[in-house]
Design a protein around this nucleic acid. Structure first.
Lengths: 332, 332
DNA sequence: ATACATCGGTTAAACGATTAACCTAAAGGA
DNA sequence: TCCTTTAGGTTAATCGTTTAACCGATGTAT
């Protein structure tokens, strides 16, 4: 049914080796045979089977991108960055969303490995990724993106500087007189959150303000997650005067709930969100965000992976600095 | 270096066939050998090479998802839907963004085909996809998603009802007295746009209002694209009283530009956008959108593909109806 | 005249699994 | 006792390529 190289060879009355050489330009072939083979290839629309090629050559020009959540705009743009670079490099990308499911993440890595991807870019679900050790040990190219794990020093990482992100946002609010600053996040025990919390704490400490665990609030990374987080946080800590929210959808949900509660932004509560989502400038009030460059992170991650693939000894960690985009919602 | 089935077999003093049977449960193996083999597998963290398996079995449990643009929220959610179903079915997904590049689209299809994906979900860049004929002819499972091509009857499609979308949105504006309705879109000659324009035209005709080509405006599917579109449209047709905008980012850009021009929404210009993006309810005024369900479209597309993979004769086209989510921006 | 490249191919062994067909020994049935 | 199953494995072909090694003929330098 499906036409193979052998079919082409038979019809052209040459060996499959010759056909292969014609296709790959690996050996000089007489013009006569070259033309005849090419013509037959055209005639049948023959497309070589890469799986066979990959098996033989032990590489696939394929990479895996494993993210832990999805319709968050930061992750989307990051994916876009990885995809863009992959395309330029002639790589195909397996995209998998683990949905913060650690077990599924491990299965996925195994599966992608078994599919012989040349490497994997992973945004891990937890900091408990010791299971990657054996892949590292095998020389399997991986890079951590966005999130990382401080124990796995052996895997290159490309992230934003989340500590600085937490520090800068908090400092900015402190400078404008806020002392009771709520912190709304989606997932704990990932470095994106934990590092920002460290930055938050250090900024507080510098200002001699005691850290209050009760000002932290968790929620799902969705609009409703933001709504619920506000409800429970405000009920518990009604004297909060500022919020630092770690995700665009939660920020949107929070704003909507604050309005419903008749709490004015920024007069009653100032807000700093995370990530420069498209609608931020046109929301009333326009939303101040601290941002890390997701597309650059994605692109860089792929570049690093490519380097790691081509040179197993490549070692480089990249941490990109945050930028504060000041608008009205933080009251300055 | 890398441990293969042969290594396991050698160490267990059995044939590779036995190891394979143990792994796949394809034959009864004595408990003694079973345990010994399993133990060796564990010891070496042996992961079977799927590429070899795929080659032998001529299937990969892998599908391609080829979209034409990206950080648009509609596409993102659609991808999410496909990904979710793929995961449930134990499939991996190649994600490729063609960036509206038709030639690259064709190359991509070829490449994915050569990588032996079991099928492809495609959101084509144009309606000129005759090149797919040979794949169809080969019995290669494909489904068109979101966009389609009326000439390729042989490929199942899962889309929104874009004609109805254009019709309903226009009708709604007409019913509220608007006669000069601008139409901002990103790409022409794709059915999403063309069908909506047909619906727009038909609604106008029904109301005995002549169609004015000059009310249509193209732009890039970005915030800036929306900004530019408004500038050029308003300069050209200053008497427009309503807008129907085909994309979330362009809607956001448009709103921002209209504000800058001091044009009030909805008093001076009413707006209906497309797609229920997260921030729509909290923008001032909250944005009325006509929506098609992107995640459902994505999920359904994968379901159809799976059916097509398992039964080559499967034929089904699915068209999902739009819903109008009325908020303040259209003035009702 | 001798040795040596070069040209244009071919042969056959990989790559790492799966799986139909075969084999042997022991058990079961009549 | 003899024939047939069955249980538990093995052999070897196969999937569709790539590629090192080989080969014969022709040209070229010494």
């Amino acid at each position: 049914m499906k036409v193979t190289m052998k079919d082409i060879a038979t019809e052209a009355k040459v060996s499959v080796a010759t056909v292969s050489h014609v296709i790959n330009g690996t050996k000089k072939i007489s013009e006569e045979k070259y033309n005849s083979i090419m013509q037959i290839i055209e005639k049948y629309n023959y497309i070589p089977n890469s799986t066979a090629k990959n098996l033989r050559q032990m590489k696939t020009k394929t990479a895996g991108l494993v993210v832990s959540s999805f319709p968050d705009s930061f992750v989307t743009e990051m994916i876009n960055g990885v995809e863009a670079r992959a395309r330029d490099a002639g790589y195909n990308l397996f995209l998998v969303n683990t949905n913060e499911d650690k077990k599924y993440e491990e299965e996925t890595i195994n599966l992608l490995y078994s599919k012989m991807v040349d490497g994997i870019i992973l945004s891990p679900t937890s900091t408990d990724i010791g299971y990657l050790e054996r892949f590292v040990h095998n020389g399997f190219p991986m890079v951590l993106v966005n999130r990382q794990d401080y124990n796995m020093k052996s895997i290159p990482r490309v992230t934003g500087d989340n500590y600085q992100t937490g520090y800068d946002a908090t400092k900015h609010l402190l400078q404008h007189g806020h002392q009771k600053i709520g912190f709304i996040y989606a997932v704990r025990h990932v470095t994106t959150t934990d590092d920002r919390i460290r930055g938050y704490k250090d900024a507080l400490k510098e200002a001699n303000i005691p850290f209050n665990e009760s000002y932290l609030e968790a929620g799902y990374a969705t609009v409703n997650g933001g709504i619920n987080a506000i409800q429970s946080l405000i009920k518990r800590e009604s004297d909060i005067t500022a919020l630092f929210i770690q995700n665009d959808l939660m920020t949107i949900g929070s704003i909507s709930m604050l309005r419903e509660l008749n709490i004015k932004i920024p007069e009653d509560i100032a807000i700093i969100g995370f990530g420069d989502f498209a609608s931020a400038p046109i929301i009333e009030p326009p939303v101040t965000n601290i941002v890390l460059p997701p597309e650059t992170i994605g692109k860089t991650a792929f570049d690093v992976l490519l380097n790691k693939i081509n040179n197993p000894n490549y070692e480089k960690n990249i941490e990109l600095p945050p930028t504060l985009i000041t608008r009205k919602s933080c009251g300055c």
